[in-house]
Design a protein around this nucleic acid. Structure first.
Length: 278
DNA sequence: ATGGCTATTGATAATAGA
């Protein structure tokens, strides 16, 4: 057991903020678009990224019992919230993890889209937000309802003074700088003003968009459509994000997007985003 | 305007993704 963090400065604007000495931590998020189709890519990636302690996966597209056993057999810790055919989120970790939540309070959508774990005193929420383009008004309402649930969850964790990150596929381009010209129509649920507003309401609970904190301008994409040679044309969008609690944000060292993964054979249409905390 | 890619399934055509 490691000792609890030692506070050396008083709380400021956010009650959770204190300057602390915590162990370094590296984690990543990756919408894998079927773990069964791409388990080998995940193993390869983990082998090449030994410093990454936790990997959050989205769209595993299987039930718990269908999740490849190779990860646990390799000595990795696994936490899964799955369902048949669609959605599904999971953690693969080099360190022990305990599940603190499955699904978000108040979110009635039965789809498997949120799992949260504790690891060495840090909390990680792994989310796959509804796309919102299908299912008409009801489908879009589920997207906004998920944002509301996540916003409430942020307030709860902040009130509990737990350092955390919400990582995953948010299915939102926060600003026009987060998509290539022409990559999406203006009516798309990923860029609708109501979607961006919901994202900002979540941010304004006191969270930090890790990539933009370190890279305020310029195009950074995490998804390229399989169609129309989108990757070759770099017609991408940034929809996979890491939002950090204040105490986590103070420790932010780097954010990197592993775009090389998009060039691999039979790859996912998303690439890993890696976050390092001091 | 359409199709274009890729995955899934009480498939082999439909649905969802983004």
């Amino acid at each position: 057991m490691r000792p609890p963090p030692v506070a050396v400065a008083p709380a400021s604007l956010w009650p959770e903020i204190t300057i602390v000495t915590d162990a370094a931590l590296c984690f990543a998020t990756w919408n894998i678009n079927s773990i069964r189709a791409r388990a080998h890519l995940v193993h390869d990636w983990l082998d090449r990224n030994p410093e990454c302690t936790l990997l959050a996966l989205q769209e595993i597209k299987c039930e718990e019992h269908q999740f490849p056993s190779s990860f646990a057999e390799a000595g990795l810790h696994v936490a899964i919230l799955g369902q048949k055919a669609y959605n599904g989120v999971a953690f693969i970790s080099r360190r022990p993890i305990s599940v603190t939540m499955q699904g978000l309070p108040g979110v009635t959508d039965p789809a498997s889209r949120y799992i949260e774990v504790e690891c060495d005193g840090f909390r990680l929420g792994n989310l796959y937000l509804p796309n919102g383009n299908s299912g008409g008004d009801e489908g879009y309402a589920r997207k906004i309802a998920f944002f509301d649930g996540l916003t409430e969850r942020s307030r709860t964790l902040l009130a509990q003074k737990i350092p955390f990150a919400f990582i995953g596929d948010y299915n939102v381009c926060p600003t026009d700088a987060d998509l290539a010209p022409g990559a999406l129509s203006a009516q798309d649920a990923l860029v609708r003003p109501e979607t961006r507003s919901a994202f900002r309401r979540l941010l304004w609970t006191g969270l930090t968009d890790a990539l933009r904190a370190l890279h305020p301008s310029g195009p950074y994409y995490t998804f390229w459509d399989y169609q129309s040679a989108a990757f070759q044309r770099n017609s991408g969008i940034r929809i996979d994000h890491a939002l950090l609690s204040p105490r986590a944000a103070e420790r932010l060292k780097s954010v990197s997007i592993d775009r090389d993964e998009r060039a691999r054979e039979k790859c996912s249409d998303h690439v890993p985003v890696i976050i390092k905390l001091a």
